[in-house]
Each structure stands twice: as C-alpha cells, then as structure tokens.
C-alpha cells in the first residue's frame, strides 16, 4: 500500500460530518482561496511552522540547523530565513516549546488506520465515522481510495470534504467507498470563482450533479466572506442550483472565521494573511432566508435553522 502526505489527524472532530468523527487532513490543495482557514494544508510538501510567542530563546535550533536558517537577534528575537531552510526539520526535533513544528508527514494507510480505529466504538455509538479533509484529499486520490476502502471493510461510515474541482475520473476512484460528500461551492459565478480561487467552477457544478446520480449523500457549503461570497445573488443562484438535487442532505452557510490568519503568519506567508470579515448577523439572517427559498434544510455553522427562525425574503 502507498503512503499519503498528511497534515494532521483530528480525533473527536465535531464539525466534519455526522456523529463523532476522526478527520484526516490531507496536505495539498489546487485552489487558492485567500480566506482559507487551513492554510497549512495548501502546499503539497512538508512545511515548517513557527509560533514566535512560544519561543523561549534557548537557541537549540541554531545548533542543529545545517543551513543556518535560524537566527537569534541580540534582543532575543528569533528569526527564520526561509530561503535558507532545506526542509530537514532537525530544528523541530530540538524545539520542545512547540514554537517550531513540522506540518506534513508521509503516513501509510495502516498507520492512519491505526489512529482512526482508536475511536471505533465512538463512531458506532454516535452514528459517526471517518472524514477525509484537507487540503484537497482527492489530489491524493489513490491513497484516499485505499484508506476509505479499508475503513469501509472495517465497518466505518466514510465522508470526504472536497472542492470537487477535479475530473470525474478522479472522484470515481473514491466513490465506491464513500457515504457522504461535503462540497464547497465557493462562488456560483464562474468568473468570480476563478478570480477568487484560481480555478473554474464548471467541474465543481458538473461533479455535484454527477454525485447526485450516485448512491451517496451530499452536503453543500458556502463560506460567507464579506464582499467576496456573501452577495444575495450568489446565495440565491447556488440555492436554485441545489433545489434540483435529490441527495442533498442540507445546504450549509459557514461564517468566515479568521483562524487561518495566525497560521499564515506562522508559515511565513505574511502576504497571504490578508484580513477578511464575515457579514454581520443581520445579513447572515437575510442570506439564510434567501438560501431557504430554494434549498431545504438550511444550516448555519453546523446547526439546523428551524422554519420559524428563517426570515422571509418574499
């Protein structure tokens, strides 16, 4: 069996599908959404992440770095010259404060499975299972398929969080072993989608329709970023599109949160740490009302919205 580049594995994951789940975060994504809350999963290689507030200035990293990428200024400030970093990650082995960490490890299916199976009993007691997320897990489709197949053979329910901006032939590899697809429509307008993510949404929409003809469940999500994705037109068009789907469990609006910012800075991607905001609560209520006109049920940040909570937009 092959191995995959995994960013992290999160047990007791509550926001990545039904029940108690273990979420396996794959490393690598072909989209470049500037508001990404998992920026450490974008690059398709292991990366050094640095949290300066945790650094105690012990200098152990300086001693082991063969490239001289670490420097301690006279006033104790720790600086990294990422251009010099060769990615040996010896510094991480010596950093006990957690200031320097490696993101991305090559792991075998059996290795991942061993961790996933730690919570087997919880899945059956809560209607949960395993979720592949990222990053874009389908960039490592063979590995994902192998992992899902093994999970299935062990009786686990499976889910994938994907942007679906991939050829159908890739999706077909995991389809037989997947119960639930959680898919983002970042923007319904093709041009805006390309402007925001660098990728067209044509495949996304086509693949959603194809999935709808497959024996899987589907959850579609849109992240609400003020000024970028939160126009009523975008939500209306998306919801209209979803109206026709047979296997849609629900349409979920996710409020943008800035958790990715600190991680961008810690990855040394200062330029990517652009600040965004979520629409205000009144606007969110309005968008929920619009969404519900076409697609039902509607969720907001993991919680179902009752009929009487929805604002009529008629």
């Amino acid at each position: 069996m092959g191995s995959g580049l995994i960013a992290s594995i999160q047990r007791f994951s509550l926001h990545d599908g039904p029940g108690i789940r273990t979420t396996v975060f794959f490393k690598g994504c072909q989209l470049k959404c500037p508001w990404c809350h998992n920026p450490e999963t974008i690059a398709r290689k292991a990366e050094l992440i640095f949290y300066p507030q945790k650094c105690i200035g012990c200098g152990a990293c300086l001693e082991v770095c063969p490239a001289g990428a670490h420097k301690l200024s006279p006033d104790g400030q720790h600086e990294i010259d990422r251009d010099l970093c060769t990615g040996c990650f010896k510094c991480c082995d010596e950093c006990f404060s957690g200031a320097l960490q490696i993101v991305g490890q090559s792991r075998s299916v059996q290795d991942v499975l061993r961790e996933v199976m730690q919570d087997e009993l919880f899945y059956s007691n809560s209607h949960g299972g395993v979720t592949l997320s990222g990053g874009e897990p389908l960039l490592q489709a063979e590995f994902a398929a192998e992992l899902l197949k093994e999970c299935r053979s062990l009786g686990l329910r499976t889910a994938i969080e994907s942007n679906l901006a991939l050829p159908w032939s890739v999706i077909e590899k995991v389809l037989p072993f997947t119960d639930l697809f959680m898919v983002d429509i970042k923007h319904f307008d093709a041009k805006k989608h390309r402007d925001l993510t660098g990728v067209d949404n044509r495949l996304v929409l086509e693949n959603i329709q194809k999935l709808d003809d497959s024996p899987v469940e589907l959850i579609v999500r849109t992240t609400l970023v003020a000024g970028l994705t939160d126009s009523p037109g975008n939500i209306r068009q998306t919801a209209e599109f979803l109206k026709e789907l047979k296997s849609l469990k629900y349409y979920e609006l996710l409020t943008y949160h800035p958790l990715g910012l600190d991680k961008c800075i810690a990855l040394g991607k200062i330029e990517a740490s652009e600040k965004f905001s979520a629409p205000d609560s009144q606007e969110i209520q309005r968008l929920l009302g619009i969404a519900s006109l076409a697609a039902r049920p509607v969720f907001l940040d993991g919680k179902g919205i009752a009929e009487n909570e929805l604002r009529s937009e008629n």
Partner: peptide
C-alpha cells in the same frame, strides 16, 4: 461550541455511553 451543533445529543451521548 460542542453543545450548539445539529446532532450534539448524538455526539455527546455517544461520548458518555462509550
């Protein structure tokens, strides 16, 4: 946050029972 999600009772109930 764990208590205010859609199937919180399934999740927390599963945790307790397990």
């Amino acid at each position: 946050g764990a208590c205010d999600i859609a199937d919180a009772a399934d999740k927390i109930g599963g945790l307790i029972k397990t």
